[in-house]
Simulated scan of single mutants.
Amino acid sequence: MQQEVLSKQLDILALLHDVSNSLKGISLIANQLIDGAYGYSLEEIRPFLLALRDTNDRGMNLLEANKVSGEVKPVALDQFDMLSFLQKTSSLFQPIAQYHSLKMHYETQSSYKHGTQVWGDSISIDRMLCNIVTNAIKYTRRGDIFLRLLNQEDDLVIEIEDTGIGIATDQLSNIFIPLWRSPTVGGTPSPNSNLLHQSGMGLGLYIALCVAHAHGLSMRVDSVVKQGTKFTIIFPYKDDGIYGVDGTMPPKSPRRQDALLI
């Protein structure tokens, strides 16, 4: 019973965490528009107005999808194109990366062996990706954020890589623990702490791993201190050519690390 109560509390905190991140993104983009950081003509600011709208819609969709249970698990399954899905994610984070003087890159292949169609809960997968990208921006002082969609043999793979401060080897086993936060990464203070990290809950990567586990995905993290971190999310190939979940959902497990390959 105590374990169930704790799990429910974490789910509620996770929902608050992600909605809070959306509101912070809205505030950041709106303030930059007001200050004229992106220009003043409609043509100049249109991409950022779209990012503002999409960030607001993301928060509203998240609340609507989780208004009953709040659990970090697939709620409504549908089929969608991961290629365009990631393009939208990249556009959403472009102004936030620009605010921190970072370059956001979306890299794709010219073709994909089995296409890019995914079957899953798009809102949950969005939570997974947005939390990892947010962390990439949070811990990168200068340089680049890369969002990639690749084939590795038959599998569909998403990579999120940064040129940030990295994660020490002895901390890698801790980063997915809920509510765990380190004041430093690799012995270096978080560079963008004033805007992104100050009110963090230590839940972003926990949420990402929960979503990966619920969809039967594998997640790997590789990091070098002072060089950067790369998260790799693997969508295993399925005979029907559509990646993602199938008819049998993995059971909810207290061992979120079951989805992690280090």
Results as ranks from 00 to 15, higher is better:
D57V: 13
E71Y: 05
H17V: 13
G70I: 00
E71M: 09
R53L: 13
S7F: 10
A37P: 06
E64C: 14
N31R: 14
L42D: 13
L52K: 05
L62G: 00
G59R: 05
E44M: 03
I45G: 03
A30E: 11
D57H: 12
S69F: 00
E43F: 11
L23K: 07
D35I: 03
L52P: 01
A14H: 01
L15D: 02
R53S: 03
I26M: 12
I34R: 13
Q9A: 14
A51I: 07
F48V: 08
S22Q: 14
L15T: 07
L16A: 09
N21M: 15
L33G: 00
E64W: 07
S20C: 13
E71H: 15
S22A: 12
K24T: 08
L49G: 06
L15Q: 08
A65Q: 01
E64T: 03
Q9R: 05
L23N: 07
R53W: 12
I29N: 02
Y38K: 12
N61G: 08
A37R: 05
L16P: 03
L49W: 04
L62T: 00
S22D: 09
L10T: 02
L10P: 01
L10M: 09
L50D: 12
I34M: 06
E44I: 10
K67L: 13
K67P: 15
A14C: 10
S69E: 01
A65N: 03
G59Y: 03
D18C: 06
A30L: 09
V19N: 13
N56L: 06
K8R: 12
A37H: 04
L63H: 10
K67M: 09
H17K: 08
L10Y: 03
I45D: 01
A30I: 10
L42Q: 15
I12M: 15
P47T: 14
A14I: 00
D54P: 04
D54F: 05
L52I: 03
S41W: 03
A30D: 09
L10N: 02
A30V: 07
L15M: 15
G36V: 00
V72F: 01
L42V: 14
A37Y: 08
L28Q: 10
G25N: 04
L42T: 12
I29T: 04
Y38E: 02
S22H: 09
L6Y: 15
I12Q: 04
D54E: 13
L13K: 08
D11A: 01
I34G: 07
L10A: 07
N31M: 14
L23D: 14
N66G: 03
I29E: 00
G39H: 08
I29P: 01
I45R: 02
L16S: 15
S69R: 00
Q32S: 11
A30C: 08
I29K: 02
L23F: 06
E43W: 09
